[in-house]
Design a protein around this nucleic acid. Structure first.
Lengths: 274, 274
DNA sequence: GTCATCTCCTTACGGCATAAGCTATTGTCC
DNA sequence: GGACAATAGCTTATGCCGTAAGGAGATGAC
């Protein structure tokens, strides 16, 4: 399965993505000649196909998503979908942008750009955790649908107040996205692995540690810094929830780190302005 | 294809990974009873299989990697590999750690932790660009082989001088990896897309822009900040949303941003120490 | 020489995306 | 009403994938 989208029929996908939503449920892409056509009525629509596909991917991950599985849930064969959508790559493109619509209704909290960005980052992270498959769709050469564009627009609007020079702004946005995507992906994979294997992170890590001790008795000498860091874990709390909490803390602290860096860049820019 | 490793026979993979290299080429996993055995001599070894697989993945991406393709390049059937390796998941685990051996010979530059980490980050990024498939192997629940462990040990050693509190250290390491992996992945996908489709980023983006203009004439009103940012690009480069394209600059600046954040955290820790 | 053991092969199964061609339904026009 | 063209969704087939099953031939120990 090719994980990278954006390879399909760009024009068709873009038209579908940016078409005004009132067309939903009628003829899918009427185009210039939107006359009534002979032949049987369409039983499906691009919209329900995309929503069904998102549901499947949410529930079972991107590996559970296949043309067959989507068709099956809609009571059709896989080939029926090809009437509406050129192929699976295009379906992924459409799913990607459609999912991002969840982030449209963002109300900005008061309290300056830093509070706003922090809150936005948490919302984006929660979104990725709700739809982890989004992270498997290529980030280079994005689909450029309206909802993904809206996400970018939002972060730019929130950062406007920070008054960063354009190149710095670009770097900040890029660093923010990479950080949020990365942490979310790790957290999501951790959950998926737990679900798939039936072992909690905690069990898995302690099993791994036992194996390591058996197979590499000289571990402590070879990797002193690693050992010291792992020994400095907090107390005897070995509950499964601790791992999630640690991931959450690491996210909060990492985000602060990054935003501290942004403040530093702001200060530098202000100085060179003078 | 399941992209997540670490699902295979953990004990066997760990043994293979941590076994001393002098066993290479002889009986692959002698175990307790390493007696001479009847039957034909082994024509392959775990090591050559893993190296061949890495070669294939380097050349054609992870989609080109299949048991069949590896066997073929070695003049065998796909099933012959199963004598040496339990399955594809385990092969990915072995590839992952083996590739990381390239990072073993790291000489630290003088100039303090910040220079050292910067240089390390560039080397890690270059490594990911040489082996982009590494980024498709799960980062949660890592394989825990010696070479990946060595990478972690290196960054911890380089950061030792910064004297960060343990939780902060964890966050810094995590943020660094996510940032480097994210930027590298974007850059790698960009290259792959260019190679696969035969269009440069520049061509692709300008094509996209034309499509956008046709399909969303109200773009500028809906996304003023995006438009302003893309207009502030240097000179004649007219592509929209191109922070991905200037990946190198964004990497350097993003890294600086992050390390500024680390400095801030250091300052905070020093103050609370007093 | 016998036999157990081992490597590597062929074959097969169920999955995937999707190309090709078929059937049946529908709207339009006579 | 009937003919016809256009269309939706079907079945079938192709060529991939990972890997289970079982067989053929080679080899060392006895």
């Amino acid at each position: 399965m090719n994980v990278f989208a954006g390879q399909g029929d760009a024009a068709r996908v873009m038209t579908l993505l940016w078409a005004s939503p009132e067309h939903d449920g009628e003829h899918p892409a009427p185009g210039p000649k939107a006359a009534a056509r002979p032949g049987p009525k369409q039983g499906l629509s691009v919209d329900v196909i995309v929503r069904t596909a998102i549901q499947i991917a949410d529930e079972g991950g991107i590996t559970a998503l296949s043309m067959r599985s989507v068709g099956e849930r809609l009571g059709r064969s896989s080939m029926a979908l090809y009437t509406y959508i050129p192929g699976k790559g295009e379906l992924l493109d459409l799913m990607y942008d459609t999912a991002h619509a969840e982030l449209d209704s963002g109300h900005d909290p008061a309290g300056g750009w830093r509070a706003a960005i922090t809150s936005w980052a948490y919302r984006l992270r929660a979104f990725y955790l709700r739809h982890p498959w989004v992270l498997q769709v290529s980030y280079a050469r994005p689909v450029l649908g309206p909802h993904e564009q809206a996400v970018l627009e939002t972060v730019l609007r929130l950062l406007d107040e920070a008054r960063l020079p354009a190149p710095t702004l670009r770097s900040v946005v890029s660093a923010l996205f990479h950080f949020i995507r990365g942490t979310a992906q790790t957290a999501a994979e951790s959950r998926q692995a737990a679900e798939a294997t039936g072992t909690t992170d905690q069990e898995w890590w302690s099993g791994r540690a036992a194996l390591l001790a058996a197979v590499a008795p000289d571990f402590a000498e070879r990797f002193p810094h690693s050992v010291r860091l792992s020994r400095s874990g907090q107390s005897g709390d070995t509950s499964p929830e601790r791992f999630e909490m640690e991931a959450d803390d690491a996210f909060a602290e990492g985000l602060d780190l990054l935003l501290d860096g942004v403040e530093a860049a702001r200060a530098r820019a202000a100085v060179s302005d003078r």
